[in-house]
Simulated scan of single mutants.
Amino acid sequence: IFRPDYLERHRFILAPDEAFGAIFTWSSLLQNARDLEMDAWNIVATENNLLKVDLDDIVRAEQMNPELAVQRVFLWTSDWIEVKRLVFRKLEVYNEFFDEYKFELRPNVKQWLTVLRKYKTSMCICSNVQRNRMKMILERLEIAEYFPFIVSIEEEFDTEEQMFLSACVKLERPPQKCVIFTDTPTSIISAHEISAKAIALSGVFKAYELRVADATMSNFDDIVVYDIRKLFSESGYEFMDTQTQLDDGSGNSSRSSQTMIES
């Protein structure tokens, strides 16, 4: 599926960056993406005399539907009616604070997204947040224009692998031609499970905890477009089909002269 035809293969040789898909997790773009989520869950915990959650719980809960998180991560209850009540209450609390909450982008996010768009790399953002909420935040942060494709909680995915595969389908790119930007070891493993590449941002986890990623960085000013191209330099669309790069006439593979993130 999504295998390029003859004309597309020729176009991708001339413009290799167009062949790739860039998938961003919610927390890879926002510095404080998990704070509001954790506050909302802890208010629900206090109201119901339940054990409060910590950042590790929130990170694990991101990989599944909230109903499963209540049962498998927070270990609050297995009664389905009670689970639904707690999830609904959390959503109420989240919505109450949402409009006043100030989300913050990681440094140089806009510059990096601008560069990817310049080279026509398709982009998608994934989250377990509601679609209308995601759009509102993206518009507030002035980056909505970069994400024509969104994977939200309405997709009803059970695992992170399903979420990433849904993003690949929306981008119309095979997983082996997609790179996933994330900040957790579990997301890196999920990316590799679907044969995608993973670039990790340190923060919640230290760099050594993210060593299974294909590349690790502290911020988006640590990467250039050519780094993405290098991740796929040894793989093509077919088995044993290497990624072709143009020769610049001097015996070296071509490299765009404008790949650095512009400040």
Rank of each mutant, 00 (worst) to 15 (best):
K120H: 11
F164K: 00
E139V: 04
P174K: 08
D5V: 09
T121Y: 00
A215F: 07
G251Y: 08
L36D: 03
E82D: 10
L75H: 15
V109T: 10
S218C: 05
E139C: 07
E209S: 08
Y119N: 08
Q111F: 09
T182K: 01
R3S: 08
H192N: 04
E172K: 15
L116D: 00
A69C: 07
F2S: 04
E234G: 10
R60S: 08
L68K: 11
I228N: 05
L55C: 07
M64K: 06
S195N: 14
E160G: 09
A144H: 11
Y119S: 07
F157Q: 04
R255N: 09
L36S: 05
D158M: 12
T159D: 04
V115P: 00
R173F: 02
M163A: 08
I143R: 01
F24D: 00
S256N: 12
E193D: 13
R60W: 05
E142A: 15
E92W: 03
Y208I: 06
A215L: 12
P185M: 04
Y101L: 04
P107T: 04
D5R: 12
E142N: 15
R133A: 03
R229Q: 14
T186S: 13
T216H: 02
S127Y: 00
E238V: 13
I1E: 10
L116F: 05
S127K: 01
D227M: 05
S187T: 07
E155L: 06
I143K: 02
I1T: 09
A207R: 11
A144M: 11
V129M: 07
M136K: 15
A207D: 10
L51M: 10
Y146T: 06
K177E: 07
D227K: 06
R9C: 09
D39T: 13
S122E: 07
F181K: 00
F12K: 05
S127T: 07
S166V: 04
I137C: 04
F149P: 00
F232E: 04
E104H: 12
V224K: 12
E18G: 04
